[in-house]
Design a protein around this nucleic acid. Structure first.
Lengths: 236, 236
DNA sequence: CGAAGTACGTACTCGCGGTATGTGAGTACG
DNA sequence: CGTACTCACATACCGCGAGTACGTACTTCG
């Protein structure tokens, strides 16, 4: 049941002399812990993964774990950050080379949909992330990784128009779009026919984008009626 | 630790003191458990709330809890369902009387933003829900409460157009919109100035809606280019 | 009135996160 | 080159909390 050996890059057998640096041992131990933790967290979830299982998989003891991390949550955070960083990197690569904002948006969407379908991203980031880290920390982490990419896309798309939007408004737009993308990804993953649902999602998102695009090109004004937060105007 | 002088024979429902019905006791006990659990789950979160604390607050023992619920998760589920049901009811009330789809959408949005700002909804449904129930069960629960309202709104909005959309496509649309609304609500709640952010959100969502509306009124075709994973259509 | 069922209460187990402390290999320094 | 100090763990243990086994008073029904 317990994964016997995940990664043993450096011989940890005591008594073996040579050029084995202590810091090197330390780094590989830490990495092994994160590797195993990522695997187990993905497979069984956070709460159902015991630290005993993690340290057994990494072939160390709890002493080693608590030397490198302050506790279970800190270990999760390390795993979380790595998964998020990988996701952001994947999306980033899909974006480079694109110059047209709309193409960029669609490519970003597709890359995002791919990322969200990864089991580790679904389980660690989407499912357990908010609960374990708390919503505040969860958002902070998102802010400087995956969300940053979405913000960049939305930025470039909105800049194509002639409006003057302040940073806060762009940020709000991006957040809403980000939420739409997240659930869209989840929708794809959990669908009976993911490929078909992916096409639907692309149609829906692309449709919203084209709606935006139409407004941009027609230089439509921002609907101030929605911003007054008071009574709605007399329906015509 | 454990409440020593528990009110065993004290009727928990003021009323007929002579013929204390057993079923009445049972129902009130169960309700008390859910009430206290909702409060504690909201305040401290799921994992940080011990069952000892719950039963102490409800002035019963663990025996009573495990008589009514199969465990901690089942108790959470009961709380979750009630919070979701209340939320759905609130939104439903904001919608009744409205017949214009777009107005309905905006009113629904405002009601949703209100609901999402409730601490119990944020903590129990959004934050802890996916982790405790698992994403599958979480989605199933959403499906027949809050999301149903969003689906209804999106349905009526989309029906205003002349397209023929199948149920699956409408569902996809609704899900994406639902995701957008959720993060929008969170964006409002966690903002430095919630009122201001609420105006931004309404502007952004309303803007998307008006984008849709513009397309509907112009009877624009569905952008099939997005479904075939090709280039974007030539804007005219 | 007695038997069965219900609605709890009591006492206990055990897995698991966290801690206190020991220890031997590395490292700095004189 | 030896010694004092530190680092990177290992071992043993604690306490909390979820879940369980079982006892018991009250209710309902034949």
């Amino acid at each position: 049941m317990v994964p016997k050996s995940v990664s043993k890059l450096v011989p940890k057998v005591p008594g073996v002399p040579g050029a084995g640096r202590r810091a090197s041992y330390s780094a590989s131990t830490k990495r092994a812990l994160v590797d195993v933790a990522e695997q187990l967290f993905t497979e069984h979830g956070y709460s159902s993964t015991s630290l005993d299982l993690v340290v057994a998989g990494a072939e160390v003891t709890k002493g080693a774990l608590y030397h490198h991390f302050s506790g279970k949550q800190a270990l999760f955070e390390a795993v979380f950050e790595r998964v998020e960083a990988d996701a952001a990197k994947t999306i980033q690569q899909a974006l480079r080379g694109r110059k047209d904002p709309w193409e960029k948006g669609l490519d970003g969407l597709r890359a995002f949909l791919e990322v969200v379908r990864e089991p580790r991203y679904r389980r660690i980031v989407i499912q357990d992330g908010p609960s374990v880290l708390g919503y505040e920390r969860f958002r902070e982490q998102e802010e400087r990784s995956t969300f940053a990419n979405v913000l960049e896309i939305v930025d470039s798309v909105l800049d194509a128009g002639t409006w003057e939007l302040d940073e806060a408004m762009k940020h709000t737009f991006a957040r809403i779009f980000f939420g739409a993308l997240s659930t869209a990804g989840e929708s794809v993953t959990t669908a009976d026919d993911p490929a078909l649902e992916a096409r639907r999602v692309e149609a829906a998102i692309g449709f919203m984008l084209s709606g935006l695009q139409a407004l941009v090109e027609q230089d439509v004004e921002l609907p101030n009626a929605f911003t007054t937060s008071g009574e709605e105007p007399d329906p015509s």
